[in-house]
């Protein structure tokens, strides 16, 4: 596995209520498809896409989790090793937005403290059914110190941007981390350090 040809490997986990379009976002990004009538995800789905950013190969492992409550204990087990979390809600569904604090509590409890969280409002193609204003979401994300973006998996709006921007941020975080680590060797037992890189060539 470690012999594969890439400079960075990141784990991205999508979370959020059922039916907000997590699977569609992933399919759109990884396969360029928008499968209508997508059934509910069972457990977790797993996709890989390698992108090139500034000449560097970045392998993205994308874990698409089931939103339904009964899969919660499965999905929670993936938080800890995630480099980034994409917290998704549906702009046409007030309920999915109102559940966000609950999701944030989960992140707090299970994820690494270095994880990058992105808030994504999906389904902007259904503008006439919008229930969550952009301003509200922006304020919320600002208060929680999250990057925020609105997307449409159907129209392919901002989907590419979402993942590529995230990859860029992950690269710069990873760089900083190794810099810090080189200066002072990390204390073991912190236990939260993430295995970012299996075979990267810096410098």
């Amino acid at each position: 596995m470690s012999m594969e040809d890439y400079d960075f490997l990141f784990k991205i986990v999508l979370i959020g209520n059922a039916g907000v379009g997590k699977t569609c976002l992933v399919r759109r990004f990884t396969q360029g498809l928008f499968p209508p009538g997508q059934g509910a995800t069972i457990g977790v789905d797993f996709m890989i896409k390698t992108v090139e950013i500034n000449g560097e190969k970045v392998k993205l492992q994308i874990w698409d989790t089931a939103g339904q409550e009964r899969f919660r204990s499965i999905t929670q087990s993936y938080y800890r090793s995630a480099n980034a979390l994409i917290l998704t809600y549906d702009i046409t569904c007030e309920e999915s937005f109102r559940c966000l604090p609950e999701w944030l509590r989960e992140i707090e409890q299970y994820a690494s403290n270095k994880v990058i969280t992105v808030l994504v409002g999906n389904k902007i193609d259904l503008a006439d059914k919008r229930e969550v204003s952009q301003q509200r979401a922006a304020e919320f994300s600002e208060a929680q110190d999250m990057y925020y973006l609105e997307t449409s998996a159907k129209e392919s709006d901002n989907v590419e941007k979402l993942f590529l921007d995230l990859a860029c941020r992950l690269i710069s975080e990873a760089r900083q981390n190794t810099l810090v680590n080189n200066v002072a060797s990390p204390l073991p037992g912190e236990g939260k350090s993430i295995s970012y890189l299996t075979c990267c060539n810096f410098n």
Partner: peptide
Amino acid sequence: SIDCLCAMINHSTT
């Protein structure tokens, strides 16, 4: 169940 197995592998890793 593969998902169940993976979840427990993850928890063990933690």
